[in-house]
Computed example of a mutant assay.
Amino acid sequence: MTSWCTPPHSSRSTPPNTIPRSSSPPTSPAPSTSTDAAIEAGVQKVIALSTDKASSPINLYGATKLVADKLFISANHYAAGHPTRFAVVRYGNGDG
């Protein structure tokens, strides 16, 4: 059976919908998170923007924003031996 995206006389060595992998490993591993990337790049200050939805969450949307804020701030402990510092700035209508 021929796939609709493969020409009939193609000599494709990988099946459709797969990404061919390189045979050689990368020279240096890529950072796994933006926290790692900032530390490795020697960034001094990293600021995340948050919203007022995270101040007193009433649904999953606000709760996930609050968790993201807490994880971002906890990156300061992760980067303790490096000059990189992490902060969150919250904007919005405010409480009250």
Rank of each mutant, 00 (worst) to 15 (best):
M1Q: 06
T2A: 11
T2W: 04
T2E: 12
S3G: 01
S3H: 13
S3D: 11
W4N: 09
W4I: 11
W4Y: 03
T6L: 11
P7N: 11
P8D: 01
P8Q: 00
H9G: 06
H9T: 11
H9N: 13
H9I: 04
S10C: 11
S10P: 00
S11Q: 15
S11Y: 05
S11T: 15
R12A: 15
R12H: 11
R12D: 14
T14I: 09
T14V: 12
P15S: 15
P16A: 08
N17C: 05
N17W: 10
I19H: 07
P20Q: 03
R21I: 14
R21E: 11
S22A: 09
S22P: 07
S24N: 05
P25C: 04
P26R: 15
T27A: 12
P29G: 03
P29C: 02
P29S: 09
P29K: 07
P29L: 06
A30D: 11
P31S: 10
P31Q: 07
P31H: 12
S32Y: 08
S32N: 13
T33K: 11
T33P: 09
T33I: 05
D36T: 04
A37P: 00
A37C: 01
A38I: 00
I39D: 14
I39H: 09
E40W: 02
E40A: 15
E40C: 10
E40H: 14
A41V: 02
V43F: 02
Q44A: 09
Q44S: 13
Q44M: 04
Q44F: 03
K45Y: 13
K45L: 15
V46D: 00
I47N: 05
A48E: 02
L49A: 05
S50G: 15
S50E: 12
S50F: 10
S50P: 01
T51Y: 00
T51R: 01
D52I: 03
K53F: 05
A54G: 03
A54Y: 07
S55E: 10
S55W: 13
I58K: 15
I58Q: 10
L60M: 06
G62N: 10
T64G: 04
K65D: 08
L66Y: 08
V67I: 14
A68N: 13
A68K: 07
D69V: 02
F72L: 15
F72K: 13
F72N: 08
F72Q: 06
I73F: 04
I73A: 12
I73R: 03
I73E: 12
A75L: 10
N76L: 08
H77V: 07
H77P: 01
Y78N: 07
Y78W: 07
A79K: 10
A79R: 08
A80P: 02
A80Q: 14
A80G: 08
G81W: 06
P83A: 11
P83G: 06
P83W: 02
R85D: 02
R85W: 06
R85I: 08
F86N: 01
A87G: 08
V88M: 05
R90C: 04
Y91P: 00
G92A: 08
G92Y: 03
G92E: 13
N93V: 09
N93H: 07
G94S: 02
D95P: 06
D95H: 10
G96V: 04
G96C: 07
G96N: 13
